[in-house]
Design a protein around this nucleic acid. Structure first.
Lengths: 192, 192
DNA sequence: GTCTATAGTCTGATAGAC
DNA sequence: GTCTATCAGACTATAGAC
């Protein structure tokens, strides 16, 4: 157990705590108990809680981008969208948490101001990627035609974020399926 | 200024504070200062913060239902949906807050357990109403055909909730328009 | 690096005067 | 009904021993 290990444990548990309880819903005491150290030791790595927050957000964002961008370019738009939804379903882990992005966006007004930009960047990265997939869908015809892929991407991303929150409220991960099912049902209906 | 007046002020300000900062993001001190009394006086009306929360939720839910159900039955489904979006846009007030339902759902794991059922009821009431409107849309053809109105209603409601959160993040109420624009764009495209 | 000890602040909540 | 005064507990954060 060297320095890196404790630091990484702190970031990983902080991410999970933010996803389940929100930034203001956990304390250094909670975090310390989870990995069996004292609160003062956390301050060695992250003098202020704000420092921990920034590190947690940046690591999460980098890891999320790696997951999304590692999708093979050879997939159809429909396949990419399905994999994206699968990633979002994994992220909530048994319907106990929500994406770090939406968890923090919900707490926005009580957060240190410096994270707002990072959160906006995270949102925009997701929306831009989704817009690209919807544009591909217009070309490869694996998805229903979208007149405004940008607006549709913002709307779909919002639906996924909202679905994560309601999945937790109803303890039912199936709610993550609704947005994509609804998007696809237009095609199903057209084919019927 | 009789009892009712102070009590009503407390509920109104509590609702606004929950919508902007979350249940754990404001204190009795904040609330007392807003209406010019001392914290001890709040305890006269609401001995525990939990009591205030329940009162705020129930009043909000009743008022919301009145607004939604007061829509003339003679409207087309498309008109009802537009009015619903307008209500949701008003509710966030200059993009500083979100609906009380999504604000609390986001804080769910740190809330007293007794509100979970009320929140679920609030969600279901909205989703049921929206499903009815989408079914009407299938009949009056003012909206694109929905193969599964229930799933589409859950998806649309989730999109509105998510859009409220991102509207605050980007300080841009226009994000509330995306879900309905996307829903309607299918028809626009078909007409083009 | 991790600890003990503690400072200083905020929190929800209570007792009792008026 | 509203106040003053106060409590016990939790919180972030710091100083300094080891």
């Amino acid at each position: 157990m060297n320095t890196e290990s404790t630091r990484n444990q702190l970031i990983a548990h902080a991410q999970r705590l933010i996803q389940t309880r929100g930034y203001n819903g956990f304390s250094y005491r909670d975090l310390a108990q989870l990995i069996g150290i004292k609160t003062a030791s956390i301050h060695y790595y992250f003098p202020q809680k704000e420092d921990l927050l920034l590190a947690a957000v940046q690591e999460y964002r980098a890891r999320w981008n790696r997951h999304v961008e590692s999708m093979p370019g050879s997939l159809t738009a429909a396949q990419k969208l399905q994999r994206y939804v699968d990633l979002c379903t994994e992220a909530i882990g048994s319907a106990e948490g929500v994406c770090l992005g939406s968890a923090l966006a919900a707490d926005l007004m009580t957060l240190p101001g410096c994270v707002r930009k990072d959160l906006q960047d995270f949102y925009r990265a997701n929306e831009t990627w989704l817009a690209g997939v919807l544009e591909q869908g217009n070309r490869d015809e694996s998805l229903p035609e979208q007149a405004d892929p940008q607006a549709a991407a913002r709307s779909f991303y919002a639906a996924i974020q909202g679905a994560q929150i309601s999945a937790r409220l109803f303890k039912n991960s199936d709610r993550l399926k609704d947005p994509l099912d609804t998007l696809n049902s237009i095609e199903i209906h057209a084919a019927a």
